[in-house]
Design a protein around this nucleic acid. Structure first.
Lengths: 204, 204
DNA sequence: CCTTGTGAACGGATTCACAGCT
DNA sequence: AGCTGTGAATCCGTTCACAAGG
């Protein structure tokens, strides 16, 4: 699967979503220019990305939306991604209730907490387990990715648990760097840094 | 201010935070190698970044932590960033309660909602206003950045409101692209795409 | 030595310019 | 004319290799 750059892949998800919007709007054809207007990217960028997947469009016509969507999905989104959440605090709860996963191929299959009072409950259909049960539950649920949504002082030990569960992908919402083996991919989402660096970017 | 790349700036925030950790741990000197170990970056990367800001370190010795922190802050973080939140649903509430902003120079100064029942309340000390009051409140509060945390169907109209309020920076948590004038910076944080593209990245 | 600082080399991604198709 | 597809050129960021300095 991996002759494509990470950036191309991320944008492909954006294309797929945009194509779905267009389908709902009743469109059947779209040009790279139109996709560019909607997504805020450039038309060349979009054609370059799509050209990775073969010759899909037709000159003078554009892309057939359903066909393009199918091709993109075949390359980047064969499976549903199963995610386990660690930490059901404010942020964790919001993630469990986030409505954006259903239409995408993302499914949160389990949540883990230390607080005994939350264990055994369900949020949005997802059961909350004790963090000690993580190895067992994670393997039963065929999870691929773990989310760290615990306070920063616990981030590293949760990361260790996630690694011990055999997962190879981590989304880290805590504002500290975590140490993991080289074969584990980590994506940090640090809200404070996002805000601060956007602010710097504005000062151009 | 802006001869530095966006990436350098983001990493600088990470350095500042790491230096604060080291200060709390009682350290006074640090090498680029040590910073590299903690942050997961390379030592050369760190030295390159720091060299943008002048000659700060001393060969054989390393960097004086307080001095380096001061210099980084002077370049990237002169002011507190004032943020307004639009949408106090699950995600919006979690953002209001997020504990990571206090130690950083980020302050949420106002929240806006359409739901009358929430207006007038406070979450974590932040007052919730009617979205109609946004122009007045935003200018009074000296806000610089707006956060979109509303359902996707309202994202564009909230974006328009934020632009109309005169803000030039937007963090968009909704899974749709928004159209804004060229002088407005937008940072999209799309959870589903983060998960899906991390998953693709893992398949190497 | 050991660590910083940096010009040069490298690599990857975007943009340019245009060929080709209808 | 209007659009896709793409080699070439360019830009940007990272890494390399090494000079300089306590």
């Amino acid at each position: 699967m991996k002759k494509f750059s990470q950036k191309t892949i991320s944008r492909s998800f954006l294309y797929i979503r945009t194509l779905e919007q267009l389908i709902r709007a009743g469109e059947t054809l779209v040009s790279s220019k139109k996709l560019a207007d909607i997504t805020g990217l450039t038309d060349v960028q979009i054609r370059k990305d799509i050209s990775n997947f073969g010759k899909v469009g037709r000159p003078r016509i554009g892309y057939k939306i359903t066909e393009l969507k199918k091709i993109l999905e075949d390359f980047v989104l064969q499976h549903i991604v199963h995610v386990s959440l660690f930490g059901v605090g404010n942020l964790g709860s919001a993630i469990l209730k986030y409505p954006g996963f259903h239409q995408e191929k993302v499914e949160i299959v389990a949540a883990f907490e230390k607080d005994k009072r939350k264990i055994g409950k369900k949020i949005n259909g997802v059961s909350i387990y004790s963090v000690e049960d993580a190895p067992r539950v994670v393997s039963k649920m065929h999870t691929e990715i773990g989310i760290i949504a615990v306070p920063e002082e616990y981030a590293q030990q949760v990361a260790d648990i996630i690694v011990a569960c055999g997962l190879h992908g981590i989304i880290n919402f805590s504002p500290v760097s975590i140490n993991v083996p080289k074969d584990v991919s980590v994506k940090n989402i640090d809200l404070a840094i996002e805000f601060l660096s956007l602010y710097c970017e504005m000062q151009l």
